[in-house]
Amino acid sequence: MVGQQHVLDPSRVPPGRAALWVQLQEVPFAPSSDAAGEPDVSAGWDDERLVAGYVERVLGRIEVHAPGLRALVTRWSAVSPAGIAAANRNAVRGDPYGGSAELDQNLIWRPGPSSSRHRTAVTGLWHIGASTHPGPGLSGGSGRLVARQLLGRAAQLRGLLAAGRTVLRRSLARARFDRSAVRARAARRATPGTGRADATVRCR
């Protein structure tokens, strides 16, 4: 995967310069041999010579399609699988993608059926990242899904609170009306000649 982010964001590089970003998605964490016999892999990624040799190989492959590339490179920086693992404990064996993305490790099964939709066993704790749906390489997709759920819950809560306030106002208004009606009936009973007779008359 090759990219040039400075094309959209010039602040990433000094004026008049350019940057080339290359990501190799399938690199062995512990290389045991090299088909071309170079570079030497015996010491693994801890040997900076292996990293430098791999960078040179990659630049050579790209230069086939971009002649003159190597002559333009003034500096390079590379992070090996071992470096990724050291920098992020979640990147097991240097895998930045959160493990397999096969069907049984995707959708509601990512990272597992009991924690689908980014929920965890801890109330209020949500799980996002490459090891959750929709998977790796989607630039914050899982975070967006969680944010939508939280905002949806907040909107639902606001709706419930608004409905509760409406019910409360109506109940209070009804209570005031009922008290007024009681006072009015009581006043009619206490005033002679008004309202209906509330006396019991015994006749023979």
Rank of each mutant, 00 (worst) to 15 (best):
R12P: 03
S116G: 07
R170G: 15
G99H: 09
G195E: 03
G124S: 14
R204M: 07
T191R: 15
S114I: 13
H118V: 05
A121W: 08
G3W: 08
G137Q: 10
S115R: 12
V55R: 00
A30E: 14
L125F: 12
L125R: 09
E56D: 15
S115E: 15
I108L: 11
A162Y: 03
R89W: 13
S115C: 06
T166G: 07
T132E: 00
H118N: 09
V182I: 15
H118M: 02
G3D: 13
A86H: 11
V13K: 02
R196C: 06
R93W: 04
Y54F: 14
D47A: 09
F177C: 14
A186Y: 00
P67I: 10
V146C: 02
A36F: 07
G94N: 01
P39N: 02
P136K: 02
L138E: 03
D95S: 06
A91F: 07
D104M: 08
A181I: 03
P113G: 03
D198G: 04
W126R: 10
R49N: 09
R179W: 09
E38P: 00
E38L: 13
S171G: 12
V92R: 10
L150A: 13
A186G: 09
A163E: 15
D34F: 03
S139E: 02
N106R: 06
N88L: 04
V92F: 13
M1H: 13
W109F: 14
S142W: 00
A163T: 05
V27T: 08
G94W: 00
N90P: 00
R57S: 03
R202P: 05
G44K: 01
A175Y: 05
G112M: 06
S80C: 06
A36H: 14
R57L: 04
G159H: 09
A130I: 07
R188D: 15
G44L: 04
E26Q: 14
R174W: 14
H133P: 01
T132S: 04
P28E: 03
R75I: 04
G159T: 06
